[in-house]
Design a protein around this nucleic acid. Structure first.
Lengths: 200, 200
DNA sequence: CTTTGCATACCAACTGGTTGGTATGTTTGC
DNA sequence: GCAAACATACCAACCAGTTGGTATGCAAAG
């Protein structure tokens, strides 16, 4: 029954769900064990500490979302600009359902731990910048098409898309729903469109 | 001597500082009392509960930042577009020093409490939307100048500026400094410029 | 004008429950 | 049979909140 560490994955999934909903500090080890259906012994068998779990959860989050985006359909268009716009559309489509189901674990944890838990901060930062990096090639290609190389860096625009999304999540949490968040993503799409669609 | 409740204000200032640095849940009542130089008795004399203090701190934050922005120099330009761009420049200038000194209390608290503390959530939401509302008149005027009324609402763009800023704060927390955040604000300024400066 | 009464502002010590973490088993797969 | 994967029982520290009290200001009664 316990061949693959089932408890470990259940704990990581529980951590993603609970921390997205309540934040890191407010999520207790007992909460996590109850949600995962395991005991404290199992928790501290797999993770040296609560902080250790947070780092593992951030990496788990990177893997899960990485797989989601890698297999998403927005990579299909031949034109890099279309791929970028399809990515933005895809992100907008994800803004549905419960808030804690479409918001970002890394962004949520960063707010709490940035000054106090450096290892967690680094894991969350790697999650966000790693995801942004998957956009850079398309952005660089689009910039080359339009001679924008001197205006900003591909990395800067890639991270700006993440900033808009993270900020949109906060607006959604303020309002209690994704409506305003979607409008912010619309502004992002309009920005990218004017960057890459105006004069060629 | 104790005519104005000195402890109350010291506690509110301490709350703003500590919660911006560590988040709400990780900030204990003892932390707040130590930082404010008062005892627990004083704390619970002025606030019915820790949650009650959080609501008061969000309102205090709204007042402090409201005064800062009301007296800031970005209102001077005669043209509404210039006022909006001056606002963005002003926000960029504020991105200096320690992270917990330029980030937003309301955005930080929202991440943690949105699903669990509805009264705190409302106070934080009011802080962000209230500040955004101070931009709407200028945005509406600028949109009228350029015939953009059908494209989006003034409120939507005002909140988008806040989304970019909140997201930029998260990037700053990820990186440990404001450099990337400033670049995101540059993208926001470029967006607003292309919206209102292109064809007239 | 001063004493009585009461409200505000604050403090030190305490409490009951919670928290992250540990020590010590027990079970399961190879 | 033995190591990894769990469970049970427990603890010391910590937490939000309480208790009972003191100091001070103020307003009206005498």
């Amino acid at each position: 029954m316990a061949r693959p560490p089932a408890a470990r994955i259940k704990l990581l999934d529980a951590a993603v769900a609970l921390i997205r909903a309540k934040g890191y500090a407010a999520t207790t080890v007992d909460d996590l064990c109850a949600a995962a259906g395991v005991t404290k012994g199992a928790f501290f068998h797999h993770f040296a500490s609560k902080d250790d779990l947070a780092v593992a959860a951030a990496k788990h989050w990177s893997e899960v979302t990485g797989a989601l985006f890698a297999s998403a359909p927005y990579h299909q268009p031949a034109d890099p600009v279309e791929r970028i716009l399809a990515y933005v559309d895809f992100r907008k489509e994800l803004l549905r359902g419960e808030i804690s189901e479409f918001t970002c674990l890394a962004g949520t944890m960063l707010q709490e731990v940035h000054a106090t838990h450096d290892n967690i901060r680094k894991a969350c930062a790697a999650s966000i910048t790693g995801h942004a990096a998957t956009l850079e090639a398309d952005i660089a290609a689009a910039m080359a098409q339009h001679g924008l190389e001197a205006t900003f860096t591909p990395r800067s625009l890639a991270l700006h898309t993440q900033a808009v999304l993270q900020g949109a999540f906060i607006l959604a949490k303020a309002e209690g729903g994704p409506a305003i968040a979607a409008e912010s993503v619309d502004h992002l799409k309009r920005y990218i469109t004017t960057l890459f669609k105006s004069e060629k």
